[in-house]
Design a binder for these strands. Structure first.
Lengths: 162, 162
DNA sequence: CCGAGCAAGTTGAGAGTTCAACCAGTAGAC
DNA sequence: GTCTACTGGTTGAACTCTCAACTTGCTCGG
């Protein structure tokens, strides 16, 4: 195993702060939604994506793709959302293997009820604390990182144990 | 429920990108560590913190505080790490309620084996993709967000249903 | 000393995620 | 047509995290 390029002290500082913020922010958002609307953040996002889709309806795999979620995760999640009456499954007419997830009226109502509190939380936690330049920077930084993650899913040159 | 200040289109874009990056990066880091070193990222971080502590030993609550983790979570995690032989629990001599978590030699070795791959992943996923200014910005932005999250743990003015 | 209250940790149940295995249905090659 | 390979989606077990009890021990006013 070759020595990797270790992080400088400054980089370590940034990484620690970043990772801590990541965890704390995730917890914060999750707790707010769970407390006020009885749903985890990931489920909220599923409802959001469905609400924007034509006829509030999407194939499972499209939904998974748009959310960056695994098929399995989505399947479990939709099962739960279906049990709550917020989503319905329907057969796909053009491909008998497929399933369609449809947002119900109850689901739309739940989303509408959850949205204001969620947006307020996002605003207070993030946008109200950053300057316009920082917001712009955050967008670019996020895009740059995401760009390197999205395509491959697997690590480039990191597999040479032995 | 008053109308919240909704996000502008630009803010929504940033938020979506940011959140997507958050999830993808977390998955990426977790998967790498799980695959190459059979531990989730949160456990890796516990080992790191312990390895920096005097005598590689910390009170459970200190460890939880340093990691921003709940007592319960840490207790479960240490139980698991203990079963793997990477950490040991000891009684606290000054407070019989307390527990000390101690990093074992095996734990230190596991950490040493995991570190290079982890650092390489961090470098490739984040630091190699950002300019020095962006790295600095990321640190400041993270600190600003964290700053608003750390103290209260509860939402400021977001509880007025009815 | 004693009791009330608080702090440190653990535990168990419930919920979400992952991974690997698994059906079913589609698509191409022949 | 049929055989094979692949895709869409589900399922079950193992694992982690959360939340709410619960146990134990410390602390401090009386």
């Amino acid at each position: 195993m070759d020595e990797p390029r270790w992080l400088t002290d400054a980089e370590q500082d940034v990484w620690r702060t970043f990772v801590t913020m990541l965890g704390a922010l995730g917890d914060h958002m999750d707790r707010q939604l769970q407390r006020d609307s009885s749903m985890p953040y990931t489920y909220y996002e599923i409802l959001v994506v469905l609400s924007h889709a034509p006829n509030r309806m999407l194939r499972m795999s499209e939904l998974a793709g748009l959310r960056g979620s695994s098929r399995s995760r989505l399947s479990h999640a939709v099962a739960r959302l279906e049990a709550q009456g917020w989503v319905e499954r329907r057969e796909c007419p053009t491909d008998k293997r497929g399933s369609l997830a449809v947002l119900t009226d109850a689901g739309f109502a739940a989303l509408a009820a959850a949205a204001p509190g969620h947006v307020t939380t996002v605003r207070e936690a993030v946008f109200d604390r950053l300057s316009p330049e920082q917001v712009r920077d955050l967008g670019r930084i996020s895009a740059a990182i995401l760009d390197g993650l999205d395509p491959d899913k697997t690590l480039p040159g990191c597999r040479e144990l032995g």
